[in-house]
Design a protein around this nucleic acid. Structure first.
Length: 786
DNA sequence: GAGTTTGAAACT
DNA sequence: CAGTTTCAAACTC
């Protein structure tokens, strides 16, 4: 089976490529896309929107490039796999019985070429797996190469990574795709904001180049010769005008696409970015034959579980996801390769990439791009769970999935970060989180995919299959029907699966509508409900610089815990559970969180925690207001940084999409204002916190929200947060609506927006949404379910 | 494995 | 918005 497919697909792809190239150059390569879209049955409306927007806009090149790239990626992946498999001997793709095997074969073949890359990736991946949360990751990243870090591979297992990375340029393309997306966003952002063109140009140019190069690369990937073409394309793309145009179009793309949902425009955009790409990948890249094949293969994989792909229509989505993942991996590896190669041909690529990598390398913290990819800002919840899940995954296939998941995350992250990147370097922070979270996030994604795939209840998620972990445990809900946040699965945006011991569970693909509607409701009530519980700043430039170790500490619990008896030393404490130190948002009474004490609590023990250093800032000692303030600021900054990266997307989303949620979104319940441990909070929670918050808010806003947002600093925010010392800030509000909260929450808020975007992607996809974000977002965006 | 504890989530 | 109840995870035995 495979062989023929392979042959056909590659041939087609190549054929397209050359034309595509020309098209791209001329800016009129839509046809292929159409075909792809047409072929893709997924979401007709989404597609149409996407297509229209894209094609109509300029995107021809970009879109095409992106799509193509994606397609090419996927196709590459497939091809590579196939080819490799064949070459390697594993030809047995037959049933694709073992994608892994194939991968391995590939990897073996390719490995030589990309040894360096694979190694780096592997390292990162391995580390990640081991230490989802903490420093270890950083360390790994740090130790590794920033690039590696940037590579989405984190979550991915070494095997997979290697495979994919080795697989080829495909990897590179993937990465490029991400960058592209970023570029798109970034440019868009500036345009929207009317930000500096110059920077934009650079960024855009670079990014675009990357994108283009990527796309082209993807397309071309097969043929090295393509590089030259890419260059040409890149050049064309490079034009700021084009970029701006594209961006404007993208921004405005909603108009075109909007037809259905105005709010969806942004989403749509995202969809286009993600889904569209995927689709394109699938469709375009793969000729129909290929598609069918791919789907079949996927199904097979599904059976095997190695690949989590849903059957039927969903299959496409999953495939997308898979491919994305593949792409990501590929991209990561690819990028590395390119770097290593430093080939002249690579110039085009290198320039673009060069920057990214360079940035990343140069300033791990800074470089958003790389980091960005990783972290989407997905929900920590998912992270925790997912990470475990990932880990848990027994099947090798799972491993593959993991990577894919990461990829998706990365993708999302890219989107989110993209805008940010251009605007703020802070994106890196997000990335960091993502990094840490990657595993989880990836897992989450997987789970989703799986769940979707599995539409069968059992597959849902494998959080704890292995049982490794703790976090991955499955739920055992009895009364909530797994439709409340009580349910870990639901909270994580994952369908319940076999491992779950829940009763009367409605959190299954079968009840997707119910699930989505419920999600909507919950989100409506609390926009942050599905947001990550913990924000990690792993790499935040600042922190990183200070101490890699600090990372964990830097991470903060979004809402903050309200622990009374557990002293934040048990899993009852979300902060502790998330491996992060308590923040000013926490209302814990006797905080002894080893990851970082909040304030008030003296770190007798804390001292041990290196983190303390970091945290100390936050934990602070509110008592020492001044110092605290400074510290807080630092934290805030961290948070801000995180938020910032996300923000751009938000802006976009908010501006374009403006989901009802945001508007409606109320500030989530701020957790009760408990006096919180800190003496202070009880006494003058408002004052101290307010101060901090104000500062933070200011800084944040400064960074994030250039203009309007600052209003957030408005007293109102303080109020909300004040009582307990925690700040309650629903991300959503911050975004679109309100200026209510700011502070640390702002970060969250920003991140939130990202969700929607992601959702969009996911939503378009199959029933199963992605991770939390998808989940939360999807409903919002799609809105249908309710 | 059952029971208790805990704190978040949900409700009023 | 605050207080109470419900819930399921975390923990203990």
């Amino acid at each position: 089976m495979d062989t023929p497919d392979r042959a056909a697909a590659p041939a087609a792809a190549r054929a397209e490529d050359s034309p595509l190239f020309s098209f791209i150059d001329s800016l009129s390569p839509i046809e292929p896309l159409k075909s792809a879209y047409s072929t893709n049955s997924l979401q007709a409306y989404h597609q149409s929107v996407n297509i229209t927007s894209v094609s109509s806009i300029f995107t021809s090149p970009h879109d095409n490039a992106q799509k193509e790239s994606k397609l090419s990626k996927s196709s590459f992946a497939d091809f590579t796999e196939n080819e490799l498999c064949v070459d390697a001997t594993d030809k047995n793709k037959p049933s694709s019985s073992s994608s892994e095997v194939q991968l391995l074969a590939r990897s073996s073949t390719i490995t030589r070429e990309n040894q360096t890359i694979a190694c780096s990736v592997n390292e990162g991946a391995v580390d990640l797996l081991k230490g989802p949360n903490d420093m270890p990751q950083r360390a790994r990243f740090n130790s590794g190469s920033p690039d590696h870090n940037t590579t989405p591979c984190h979550g991915v297992r070494s095997d997979l990574k290697q495979d994919k990375c080795r697989t080829l340029e495909a990897v590179h393309t993937t990465k490029n795709t991400l960058e592209k997306r970023k570029c798109l966003f970034s440019p868009v952002m500036p345009l929207l904001n009317g930000c500096q063109p110059a920077k934009d140009n650079e960024v855009l140019g670079c990014e675009w180049e990357d994108l283009v190069s990527v796309t082209s690369g993807e397309l071309l990937a097969f043929d090295p010769s393509m590089d030259g073409d890419h260059r040409g394309i890149q050049l064309a793309v490079n034009n700021a005008e084009s970029c701006g145009y594209l961006l404007s179009k993208l921004a405005g793309g909603g108009d075109v696409s909007d037809r259905t949902n105005p709010s969806a425009s942004s989403q749509t955009y995202y969809h286009d970015m993600v889904m569209g790409d995927d689709k394109t990948e699938n469709a375009q890249f793969f000729p129909e034959d290929k598609k069918t094949i791919s789907s079949e293969e996927i199904q097979d994989n599904l059976k095997e579980e190695s690949v989590c792909i849903p059957t039927g229509c969903k299959v496409e989505n999953q495939q997308r996801g898979v491919r994305r993942r593949c792409l990501v991996f590929e991209a990561a590896g690819y990028s590395h390769r390119t770097l290593h190669k430093g080939s002249a041909a690579g110039l085009s690529l290198s320039t673009c990439k060069g920057k990214n990598p360079a940035q990343s390398h140069a300033n791990p913290g800074k470089n958003p791009s790389p980091h960005v990819f990783r972290g989407i800002g997905l929900h920590l919840n998912a992270l925790a769970l997912t990470a475990k899940d990932k880990m848990a995954r027994q099947d090798p296939s799972t491993t593959a999935l993991v990577p894919s998941l990461k990829i998706e995350q990365d993708m999302h992250g890219n989107f989110l970060s993209a805008g940010e990147n251009s605007v703020h370097p802070g994106a890196g922070l997000l990335d960091l989180q993502m990094d840490n979270d990657d595993c989880s996030a990836g897992g989450f994604l997987e789970s989703e995919h799986i769940s979707s795939q599995s539409s069968s209840p059992p597959k849902k998620r494998r959080k704890s299959d292995n049982g490794d972990d703790d976090s991955c445990k499955r739920c055992s809900c009895k009364k909530s029907k797994c439709l409340k946040l009580y349910c870990e699965c639901f909270a994580a945006g994952v369908y319940c699966s076999e491992p779950c011991s829940c009763q009367g569970c409605l959190n299954k693909p079968i009840h997707e509508e119910i699930v989505l509607s419920t999600r909507k409701q919950i989100e409506f009530r609390n926009p942050l409900a599905f947001a990550p519980k913990v924000i990690r700043m792993s790499d935040a430039g600042q922190e990183t610089q200070e101490d890699p170790n600090n990372t964990p500490a830097s991470a903060r619990h979004k809402r903050g815990c309200n622990c009374k008896k557990s002293s934040c030393l048990k899993k009852y404490c979300e902060c502790y559970q998330g491996g992060v130190g308590c923040s000013t948002n926490c209302r814990c009474e006797t905080c002894k969180n080893t990851f970082g004490i909040r304030d008030g609590v003296v770190p007798t023990e804390n001292e041990e925690m290196k983190e303390v250093g970091e945290q100390t800032e936050s934990c602070g000692k509110e008592k020492e207001n001044d110092q605290q303030n400074a510290n807080v600021d630092s934290e805030d900054h961290k948070l801000i940084g995180l938020a910032v990266p996300i923000t751009p997307p938000l802006d976009l989303s908010s501006s374009l999409l403006k989901q009802p949620n945001f508007s409606n979104a109320k500030p989530p319940r701020p957790s009760k204002p408990r006096s919180g441990s800190s003496s202070r909070s009880s006494k003058a929670p408002g004052t101290v916190q307010s101060r901090k918050i104000a500062k933070v808010a200011d800084s944040v806003f400064d960074v994030e929200m250039p203009d309007t947002s600052k209003d957030t600093s408005s007293p109102g925010i303080v109020k909300t947060s004040s009582p307990n010392g925690k700040r309650v800030s629903p991300p959503h509000n911050a975004l679109s609506i309100s200026p209510n909260r700011k502070g640390g929450r702002k970060l969250i808020l920003k991140s939130i927006p990202s969700f929607p975007s992601l959702l969009g992607d996911m939503s378009s996809g199959s029933a199963v949404s992605n991770a939390d974000s998808t989940f939360s977002a999807s409903p919002l965006v799609l809105g249908p379910p309710s």
